[in-house]
Every structure is written in structure tokens, then in C-alpha cells.
Write a protein that binds this DNA or RNA. Structure first.
Lengths: 160, 160
DNA sequence: GGACGGCTACTCGGATATCGCTTGTCCGAGTAAATGCGG
DNA sequence: CCGCATTTACTCGGACAAGCGATATCCGAGTAGCCGTCC
């Protein structure tokens, strides 16, 4: 799994704490976590394409959440960064080589291996879809109730 | 996820159908699915290190399952190929950059983002551990009852 | 005829190269604010 | 003093390289079977 998923999730968490009031430029977000600015921008573009965050250009522009944190699931973010394709991709090797000479009736049903792997993957996606960004916020605030205010302050002070 | 997982699973399925009676050389397994022989050998070595299959050198050597298919889970195979590390790896970016200047109390608990991701990943692993190689065999035989016999025959005929 | 020693062919195993994708970087298009000028 | 056109600085967005892991390959170590020879 790509490292960008972690970056995107933490960036969304920050944007959620900032709120819809103001946009945060990518330079601030990158400075907050000491991440490469341009590459983080690339990941945020993927979130924009997925409709999770919205971007505004111009002198006071930046990124902000496109909808309420309670309506943004982890699956949304993961799918936006990693792409729509399944983690396990069946290449149908059963239809290649000597094994492909079996009677067609054996290939009527989908590949049993792929079915099992996809079943497990659905469980993963279900767990990801069950957790929202608001849940993450709550969990983080439970550890430190001052986290949201502190995040806003550090974000403001963060410089390139 | 690497392509080797699919290869390893299908190879284990074949070895399960062949049974413990005889060893199957990697050349036969590769020819059955039209896979690169040497690289498949590399993947099977990982299965050997994990104790899933056993290898015997020599003129009638090859690979065979090390234990009963009902005692081999998909998680065993996936872990053997992909390695023990988690799919989502937390690099603790919250402790870097401007955000790290928050009070230490905020870092007492583990990262909320990583916790949520790992929770979902545990669901995935649980689903993988619940399915055994014997289950895959049953599902495949339900599609074509002649699959095991056909597989043995094609394996014997398969040539480099 | 039986047994033993050497030989051969075949197998796995790890060291070695190649490719594609993730990661990282750069510069241009576009926009909103600020500013100076004219009425 | 107010409104407008221009300038300017700052933002995102997509095009362009680099590094690293997955992919693919080769050759050597080792073993089991086979054959010839000797007793």
C-alpha cells in the first residue's frame, strides 16, 4: 500500500479540524508533517478528483473538505489514492498453459481462488467503509482534547 | 499485492490435488499455468521457508504440501509470499514537522489513523485465516467434479 | 547372480540483472486580492 | 471620496525525472537413480 494513503488521511484529519471556514494551502499541510510539498499536492489532487476535498486557487486559496467528516469514510480516501482496482487482481492463469485444456465446464464458475481472495477483500473494504473521518477525530481528541486547537495553531505557524 | 500470491495459491491447489504420494517439479507446475519457471521456483522457496510445502531434491524430486490442505489457510500463503509486515505501515508522520510540537500527552495513545487502518486489516486477515485450501478445493470441484483428475493428467502431460 | 562404486541426469537454491511503478520535482495556467489612477 | 483597470503575488494543476522493489533469469550445489564392473 502506498505511503500517500497515510499522508492523505492525516491531511484530511487536519482539514477536518480546521473546518470549512478557511482553505489551507498545501505548503502549510506539508510543513505540518514535514512532507514533500509537491508530491503531497499530487495526492490531494486525487482527493479533489474523488470529490473528497475541494480546491480553490488564488491568493487565499488552498484545500478544504468537500463534505462533512461524518460522511467521509476511510474507504473513500483509500480508493481515491490507491485507485479503484482490487488489491488482489486475478489474471486468470487457469486459462493459460496446459491446464487450460480442461473441459469448458470447469471454467463456468469464476476462479475459486479469486473468489476467496475477493471475499476477504470485501471484508476489508466493509471495515474501511464503517469508519468515518469523524470517528478518527473523536479517537484523536480522546487522547488529547486540545489536539484540534493545537493543530490549528501549529498550522498557522507552519512555514515553508 | 504481488502477482506471486496468485501463482502460489494455484500451485498449492494443484499440489493438493496431486496428493502427498509424489513430488511435482517446478517445471511441471510452471508449464501447467504458463508461468516463468525460475521465478515460480522463487515463490515456492518462500512457501518452503514458511513450512507450507516441502521440497525434495534429486531426480524424482519436486514440491509437495507439507501438511493437510485443511490446515493450510489463505493467510498462511499470503503471509509467506508478501512477508510479515502489515499492508498499511504507519511512519508516524504526526511526530515530524510543526505538528510534532504538540504536548506529549497527545502522543500517549497510538496514532488514531493507524489504529483504524490496522483494525480493517485485521478483519481482512481474519477472513483470510477462515478459509483453508480444502475449502478452495471443494469450491473448485463443485464447478467441475472432474477437475482433480484432469489436473493430475494435464500435470503429467505438461512439458517444459 | 549379486553387490558395490562411479557416473549421469535431474532437481532445488541462491546470487544476479532488468523493468515498471511509486516517489519526487519542476514550471506554467489561472485566480483573487491589492494598488494606483481617473472621475 | 468612490469606482475601475492594471498589476502582482500566490495558488493549484499537470508534465517531467529518479529510486527502489517486484519481476525475471542464470548458473552452481546436491541428490537419487542408473549402469558398468568386480567378486
Amino acid at each position: 500500500m502506498g505511503e500517500g494513503v497515510e499522508w492523505a488521511l492525516h491531511s484530511c484529519l487536519l482539514l477536518a479540524w480546521v473546518g470549512d471556514g478557511s482553505s489551507v494551502p498545501v505548503a502549510k499541510l506539508a510543513a505540518f508533517h514535514a512532507l514533500p510539498r509537491a508530491y503531497l499536492n499530487k495526492q490531494l489532487q486525487a482527493l479533489v478528483r474523488a470529490g473528497i476535498v475541494s480546491s480553490t486557487p488564488g491568493v487565499r486559496g488552498g484545500f478544504r473538505l468537500a463534505r462533512d467528516p461524518a460522511r467521509i469514510t476511510l474507504l473513500d480516501v483509500v480508493s481515491a489514492i490507491e485507485g479503484p482496482q482490487a488489491v488482489f487482481r486475478c489474471t486468470e492463469i487457469r486459462r493459460r498453459g496446459a491446464g487450460a485444456q480442461a473441459p469448458d465446464s470447469d471454467f463456468r464458475l469464476p476462479c475459486a481462488v479469486a473468489s476467496a481472495m475477493h471475499r476477504a477483500e470485501r471484508a476489508w473494504r466493509r471495515a474501511l467503509a464503517a469508519e468515518t473521518l469523524a470517528d478518527i477525530m473523536q479517537a484523536a481528541e480522546r487522547a488529547g482534547p486540545s489536539a484540534p486547537r493545537a493543530a490549528r495553531t501549529r498550522l498557522e505557524q507552519a512555514q515553508i
